[in-house]
Simulated assay, not measured.
Amino acid sequence: MVPDFAVVVAGLLFGSFLNVCISRLPRHESIVSPRSRCPHCLTPVRSLDNIPVLSFLVLRGRCRSCRASIGWRYPAVELVMPALWLLCWLRFGATIEAGAMGVLCFLLLGLAVMDAETMHLPDAFTLPGILLGVLYAACRSGLRGLGLAILWALAAGSLIVFIRWVYRKLRGREGMGLGDAKLLAMIAAWLGPWQTLLAFFLAVVAGALFGLARMRRMEARLPLGAFLCMASLYVIFFGQATIDWYLGFFR
């Protein structure tokens, strides 16, 4: 019970920090300074008003100074982050894999929200994410794992670049950003080829269904990165079981 509680508390704190990253990195602002402030009146947030989830409930979702509404994204991220970390703890136990997947969950959740809100996938998350994925592979399988992780990352990134090139040739405009290529490279470095392909397939299907649902609103652009991140979160916990279920049809 104590480890579970510690994981949840840590998740709440890192969820609060993740909100800072989500708010500032797409605008190329520092995540260190200035301190947290209301985006409407720019009044610094007091320490007692910066407690994850609890402060939002006490303030009833409004800034103490100007009474402007605080977006529901803040408590949502603060709740989802510890939920993901608790799942990592329950799924992988007290292992290096649990910690590594916790880091990946942090990166994926942040990138999913940033892409959904701004259509931007900051290099400050994707590039360190690729490096960390490669290092994790090296820790698990030595030089062979290091080489394979680099290979899978390059192959995954190249796949998006190729699709982007074909789309531009056929349609005469950009269809994907390079941020999507870096994101898929990051996912491949962490999860390997088969689980990455599963995540890509699920993201494309989900994105297509979401796009069809929005056709009446004439909103052409879709945050593919957000779908890739959400699909990868699914794959972390259920990817191998899904692959085994699918392969069972051919046995």
Rank of each mutant, 00 (worst) to 15 (best):
F106I: 06
G15N: 09
L111D: 01
S55C: 13
W194S: 05
E97L: 14
C105L: 07
G110I: 07
I150H: 01
A241M: 15
A206N: 05
S69R: 15
L247Q: 14
H40L: 08
L13Q: 14
W85S: 00
L104W: 00
A138Q: 03
E174W: 00
L86R: 02
L79G: 04
P3R: 03
F238H: 15
L90H: 14
G93V: 09
G61A: 08
N50A: 10
D180N: 06
G102W: 00
A188M: 08
L54W: 15
M1Y: 02
R214P: 05
Q195L: 14
A116P: 04
M230T: 15
L222D: 06
L107T: 04
L146Y: 01
A185E: 03
T242F: 12
L184P: 04
A188H: 04
P193Y: 09
S69G: 11
P128Q: 06
V235W: 04
F92Q: 07
A188L: 03
F106R: 01
M114S: 06
A94W: 10
P75W: 09
V113N: 01
C229G: 04
L233K: 00
W190P: 02
L209M: 13
I70L: 15
L143A: 11
V7T: 10
L12N: 02
Y167K: 05
D180W: 02
R214W: 03
A189D: 01
E174T: 08
L191I: 08
L154D: 00
R46N: 11
V166W: 10
M114V: 10
I150R: 00
R217S: 03
L111Y: 02
A185R: 01
A156G: 06
P223T: 08
M81Q: 15
T118H: 13
L121W: 00
P75R: 03
I31H: 07
A137I: 08
R140P: 03
T95K: 00
S65F: 09
V235L: 12
W89G: 03
R217H: 01
W245T: 14
F227N: 03
L109E: 08
F125L: 15
T242P: 05
V103E: 07
R171M: 11
F210V: 10
M119Y: 10
G11L: 15
G192E: 04
P39E: 05
L127T: 09
R217K: 14
C38K: 02
T242G: 02
C21Y: 06
R171S: 01
S69I: 13
F201M: 14
A156L: 09
A153G: 05
E174K: 10
L178I: 07
N50Q: 09
R60P: 12
R140W: 13
S33P: 02
A6T: 12
G225I: 06
L247N: 11
I31E: 09
S23M: 13
L121Q: 05
L159A: 12
W194I: 06
L170F: 08
P193H: 02
G15F: 07
D244S: 14
L107V: 12
F249K: 11
K182Q: 08
L184E: 00
A226H: 05
R60F: 14
